[in-house]
Structures are given as C-alpha cells and as structure tokens.
Amino acid sequence: MIRDVRTMIWKEWKEFLVQGGRSRKGRLFTVGIPIAIFGIFIPWRAGPGYVNNLGSLIVPALMPLLFTMAIVSDSFAGERERHTLETLLASRLSDEAILFGKLAAAVLFAGGMFVFMMTLGLIGVNLAHSDGRLLLFPLNRVIAVLVLDFLLAAFVSAAGVLVSLRAATVRQAMQTLNMGFMVMMFGSLFGFESLPATWRATLLRRLSGENSGQTLFVAALILVLLDVALLTSVHTRFRRARLILD
C-alpha cells in the first residue's frame, strides 16, 4: 500500500511539475520566483525582526495551498478529462492507494513548499542581517504553524478531491473550489466583523496573548475533526463503478 501511494505521489508530482513545460527557462522561472521573493526580497526588507514576525511563517504556509488547490482540482477531474482515469482504475492499484496517493501528493507538496520557503527566508535574513549570530524562528511557533499548515493542507486537499470527483472538467473543479474558499474567507471576515466588540477583543487577545497556545490547540482540534469528516466522505464517494460512469 505504502509503495503504491509513493507511486501515485511520483506520478502526481511529475505531472504537476512538467505541466508548465520542460524548458530550462520554465524551470528557472518556477524555482527562481520563490527564491527571489521569499529568500531575498522579504527577509532583506524585514530586517532582523523577520524571525519574530508571525507573518514571516504564515505567508509561506498559506501560499502553497494555492498549488494544492491546483493539484487536487486536476486529480480526478483532470484524469477524467484527459481519458486516463479508466486505465488507472483498470490497473492493480487499490482504491485507497489511488485516493491517498493523490491526497498525499497535494499535502506533502504544500508542506514541502512551506519548509523550502521558510528555509530560504532564514538563509536570506541570516546572510543580510545576522551580525554574527544565528537568527532563527521560535521553535514552538514553527511547530505550531507546521502542524496547522499540514491540517489545513489536508482540509484543502480532501475538499478539492471531493469536488474533483464530482466535476466533469478541471475548470469546473477549480471554479467550485475557488468559490468555496472565497465564501469561507469572506464569511470568516464578515463573521468576525459582525461579532460584538468585546468578543472580538477577547478573540484577538486569545490569539496573541499568553493563551495563544491553547487557542491554536483548539483550532488544530477543529481542523482534525473537519479533516476526518472530509476524508471519510471522500473515501465513501470513491467507487470505481461510479467514477467510470460519471
């Protein structure tokens, strides 16, 4: 099973990475932009305080989720659109290997990109502003963001696969996902704004104050529950016969 999941990850990444073309220029462009932004520009502008700013971790954690959405939109809808799904389903791979392989490819890609961009930022800030001492992010903060990023990526991936299983085309899957996340984002924003002022103040205090660890734990717990519910739903929805006829 693990070997089959690894094969699926290999395939998903290979397809995703070559979809922009195999030219040297294309590859340089793909790798060069994050290096320039997260490894040079942001750490250089932010100064030594870069490592103490929560945003330095949040942005690299959230950005890869956009790639995750692209990977998962393509997962089943893309295979169906390009007529490769039936051949894959006719192979020896189990339902779980196909499903978890596609999910793992998206989640690990998001996690890997986060670690890559965080490392770039650290190298950049140390080269520009270290003054002989090593500048590092607080470890507890790195771990908390990493865990939340993983759970959030799992949530986005599972939701994306669920949408992709039902969508006829990648475009349709991507539109539905974008719409869903816009509703969630603006819903949270407007929801927060519509709270009474005292509630908002309490919430902000909990997020930034001494109890932030407890708040993050609750957020992680909610994400775990959402992930489990979505993964169960995806697993129930994934049926070979249904996929063939959709």
């Binding site: 395939k11 397809e15 390009r82 007529h83 490769t84 039936e86 051949t87 894959l88 006719a90």
Partner: peptide
C-alpha cells in the same frame, strides 16, 4: 480500453 489512457504531459 476505449481511450489509450496515456499521460500526454
């Protein structure tokens, strides 16, 4: 099957 099922990318 009906389609070659080749990954064209």
């Amino acid at each position: 099957l009906e389609h070659p099922g080749i990954y064209e990318r």
